[in-house]
Design a protein around this nucleic acid. Structure first.
Lengths: 184, 184
DNA sequence: GTCTATACGTGGATAGAC
DNA sequence: GTCTATCCACGTATAGAC
């Protein structure tokens, strides 16, 4: 198939940006269209309804998730480092769309839960594979979710130094537990 | 002052419930009024505008926060246990209102951030006082935030067993770190 | 494929009766 | 203190021109 029209991608991006920055309430068709640089009618040509727009975003998230998990598994510094660092940083397209979907899941599109659960499960599994410790993997996964949550509430951001300490804490704990119950 | 009318409290409770379960978009004056068992006009007598309603909720949260932090500090099993257990459980009035406020903070009422930040800071401090370890306190605080976040997304809930493991993990880590760098 | 114009429903808020 | 009736603005969606 020929490359999909750029307008489609621009609309999805604009939609995600508005969802994350100012919430579902402000993500009106008009606001999205304006930010994407098209008209309301133009937007509705690509996405015939608001539900279709949300579906489009979720589909996009599925695509991005697979790529992100792969990147996490092959990250040089390891999965823990990769996950925690990207969670505190909302710049990437994947993080943006993930957060947008979590907004949707809290509102009128509970279908979004499914996609979010899949992502959550995929990277908890990757963490477990690296750490060999399901409980610690779960703990790291929760911290990641907490970082996402705080980042979007706009709460005081964890600076890089704080993140480094957290990552070191996990490494230290992983090692300590390998000595006691890990290899059993 | 005489006890405030029961209607006021009922309206705030209904508002919080709708915010948490179906998001800001569905939290219309009409929906809130209906759930609270009053009319739109009746609601608007107590809260003259939607902003006033949100302000009322935030004020209520401030009151509840002080009480919750006090409970956390004097909890028999300790602050870590108390915080993680209450984070996974959305039944209490405090948790409901906290989550409702976090919905508001993501949307049109960034003022909510302030109140949420205060709560966050208060219990991170309580954790640090108990653990004597700022980094670990931060880690637990993030896990708590992650639990909140997942609980409302409606993701697979951490069962009690999983929670117990997490709490044990924190206790174990705290002890291990006291041996190395904690008492320096 | 993208735009303008328009119809329709709904949400927020006011006025005034009870 | 609570209700009903009503007004206005806005958001979604359709129709049809270009």
């Amino acid at each position: 198939m020929p490359p999909p029209p750029a307008a489609r991608a621009k609309v999805l991006h604009a939609y995600a940006e508005i969802l994350v920055s100012t919430g579902e309430r402000s993500a009106t068709l008009e606001a999205v269209a304006e930010r994407a640089g098209v008209s309301k009618g133009g937007l509705l040509y690509h996405f015939p309804s608001k539900d279709a727009l949300a579906d489009g975003l979720l589909e996009h998230l599925r695509e991005l998730t697979a790529a992100d998990v792969a990147a996490m598994r092959s990250a040089p510094q390891g999965a823990v480092d990769y996950l925690l660092r990207t969670s505190a940083d909302i710049d990437g397209e994947f993080e943006l769309v993930y957060l947008a979907a979590s907004r949707l899941s809290q509102g009128l599109y509970p279908q979004a839960r499914e996609v979010l659960d899949e992502a959550q499960a995929a990277w908890t599994e990757a963490l477990d594979d690296e750490l060999g410790d399901p409980v610690l993997a779960r703990a790291v996964s929760l911290m990641s979710e907490g970082l996402y949550s705080l980042a979007t509430i706009g709460a005081t951001r964890v600076d890089d130094a704080g993140l480094g300490d957290l990552i070191a804490l996990v490494a230290q704990t992983a090692q300590a537990r390998r000595g006691t119950a890990g290899t059993a």
